[in-house]
């Protein structure tokens, strides 16, 4: 019986220790290796850029891992990664890291396509997330309870959302707390009375795939990649690569490549907005 108890305990804890990162020890001779970690928003883009870079440089191996902007900065700082990915503007307090802007991304509020509400004011959004408005009919929609989809602590999307609406995380009364953009989109698609916020790129892509999703405009400005590009959409953020100090060698070369026009099609392919030099 004792053995059974041991087995049971092992089964139960196995879920919490599986977070180890599978990084290989340093580079093998000849092939050069670049480790990039961080924001799950930047990661798909970095992975595509890396793939194209590897095609041109056969002896380079680039390993892209996600884990959020905070991890990207921590790994770059500790030297666990050559380059960190951060999906927001660089802060004053992070002087030790050098940012390299590669694209812009916007955040937008999404509802189900069948929801008759087509615009919400800043106050209405704040009140919905604070739980003061609980029914869609209070903002001109159907008589149905609003299902508020919110992000989990630590996500940069959450940080950007809270900062823009000047909300404190403790004031928010969510019905669903989610991890990444995909989970947010699925939650809203599965519930006609839900409201959530995700990257515009991700949302626009789903709409183009014919999914029943509606992007709400903000302050009268339509939520679209075009309006991120001209800087008129208020809820937007920078996508940065960060390095500890000035980048050297392979890292510097990769960052130059990521900022060049050669990857603009990849950036647009993911509905991000390239930087205009």
């Amino acid at each position: 019986m004792k053995r059974l108890i041991v087995v049971c305990l092992l089964v139960a804890v196995s879920g919490c220790v599986s977070d180890s990162t599978g990084e290989d020890p340093k580079t093998a001779p000849k092939t050069q290796k670049l480790v990039i970690t961080g924001s799950s928003t930047v990661a798909p883009l970095a992975a595509e850029i890396a793939q194209r870079y590897e095609q041109d440089h056969p002896n380079v191996r680039i390993d892209v891992q996600t884990g959020g902007s905070s991890r990207g900065m921590a790994d770059a700082r500790k030297g666990l990664a050559d380059i960190g990915m951060v999906s927001r503007a660089h802060k004053e307090s992070e002087r030790d890291l050098t940012p390299h802007l590669i694209a812009h991304d916007g955040l937008c509020l999404i509802v189900h396509a069948t929801n008759p509400v087509s615009e919400l004011t800043r106050e209405q959004i704040i009140h919905i997330y604070q739980g003061q408005i609980e029914n869609w009919k209070e903002v001109g929609g159907d008589d149905a309870e609003i299902v508020v989809v919110h992000k989990a602590e630590g996500r940069s999307t959450l940080e950007l959302f809270l900062k823009h609406f000047q909300l404190d995380n403790s004031e928010i009364q969510p019905d669903i707390v989610i991890g990444d953009n995909q989970q947010g989109i699925k939650s809203v698609l599965g519930n006609p009375h839900a409201i959530g916020y995700v990257s515009i790129g991700a949302a626009e892509y789903e709409v183009e795939q014919g999914r029943d999703l509606k992007l709400l405009p903000l302050g009268g400005i339509e939520a679209s990649t075009a309006h991120i590009e001209d800087g008129s959409f208020p809820l937007s953020r920078e996508l940065n690569l960060v390095t500890l100090g000035e980048p050297q060698g392979l890292a510097a070369e990769f960052i130059r490549f990521a900022q060049s026009e050669a990857v603009h099609d990849l950036i647009e392919g993911l509905y991000f907005v390239p930087i205009q030099k």
């Binding site: 139960a12 804890v13 879920g15 919490c16 977070d19 884990g67 905070s70 991890r71 630590g154």
Partner: peptide, 30 residues
């Protein structure tokens, strides 16, 4: 378990440490 999985990926310092404490609480419950 959901708490650990949802937040561990980008938890730092006190936050990370608190998630390991969550793991201990889980062991206790079991």
């Amino acid at each position: 378990t959901a708490n650990i999985a949802l937040e561990m990926a980008y938890a730092m310092q006190s936050h990370r440490s608190a998630l390991f404490a969550t793991g201990l609480a889980l062991m206790l419950v079991v």
